[in-house]
Design a protein around this nucleic acid. Structure first.
Length: 271
DNA sequence: ATGGTGGGTTACCCA
């Protein structure tokens, strides 16, 4: 599907840094913004404790893959907008291990025959350039690229969203000199991100804004948010058909200003 | 000035 019109869907990604703690923020944001598909990262909860009922009361079905303490991803699907049948899966045999960092769902907007693929990832942070976790991050990204190439080849419309833990370019960094070749900004990480775009995806935010100074994550330390010390590391990437119908994309900084916030802001695209 | 905060948990963890 290329050159098509818009589906009229608002899709989003948000690293909530503990769904247990952030559920009130999430519900407040869902009610205000009414996104149709949401990828959540760092839910930090096991599946038996996932607040599926509370989210259903907010109008969303959930699919989720969690583990104790770390990681955890979920997809929220707005009931009113989609057919009931949802094909979903977590994990991928190409990935280096079983950490819960990837989940994908195929949904059908009500009254259509469109098959929309929504993939949500929590890319490893990598800790520090050159360390073992950094190598793991690059291996994980290589596996993701292979997976994305396969998804793109399947010709379905694909949105790949998540916390990529990569600021793609210097304009995505508050102080490019200070961050030069540091974690989240190093050349191998940026190449891995570029390889995802080269597979046939578009960074929706950069379709609508080319200016520096737009960030999606601010460190809790150093009063990062108040001082504007951020990076743009959360992304909504769209295959060609979706990108051509993408009418808007933004970073919603408001929830980052609320009490007890996640360190990430939600990112949104209208397709 | 090389720290700091905020999740998780009880691991000199992870971001």
């Amino acid at each position: 599907m290329s050159g098509g019109g818009s589906l009229g869907l608002k899709i989003a990604s948000w690293n909530v840094n503990s769904l247990r703690v952030r559920l009130p923020h999430l519900q407040r944001w869902l009610a205000a913004e009414q996104p149709d598909l949401v990828g959540l990262q760092e839910t930090k909860t096991t599946d038996d404790k996932f607040p599926a009922e509370a989210l259903h009361a907010s109008g969303y079905r959930s699919v989720f893959a969690g583990q104790p303490t770390y990681n955890g991803v979920a997809i929220l699907i707005r009931d009113a907008q989609f057919e009931e049948a949802v094909d979903w899966s977590a994990q991928d045999p190409r990935l280096p291990d079983d950490q819960k960092r990837l989940i994908a769902a195929t949904v059908t907007p009500k009254g259509t025959t469109t098959r929309l693929r929504f993939m949500n990832v929590y890319v490893p942070n990598g800790s520090e350039v050159g360390c073992e976790k950094y190598d793991y991050k690059l291996r994980w990204l290589d596996a993701l690229k292979t997976r994305i190439n396969k998804e793109i080849a399947s010709q379905t419309q694909l949105a790949l969203v998540g916390d990529f833990n990569i600021a793609p370019e210097d304009r995505d960094v508050h102080d490019p000199q200070a961050w030069h070749e540091k974690i989240l900004c190093s050349t191998p990480e940026r190449r891995a991100f570029a390889a995802l775009l080269a597979a046939g995806l578009t960074d929706s935010f950069r379709q609508h804004c080319t200016e520096p100074g737009y960030f999606s994550w601010w460190d809790y330390r150093q009063a990062g948010f108040r001082r504007g010390l951020g990076l743009r590391i959360d992304h909504v990437l769209l295959s060609a058909g979706l990108a051509s119908g993408c009418s808007n994309a933004l970073i919603d900084k408001e929830p980052r200003s609320w009490d007890q916030p996640s360190d990430h802001a939600p990112v949104v695209a209208s397709v």
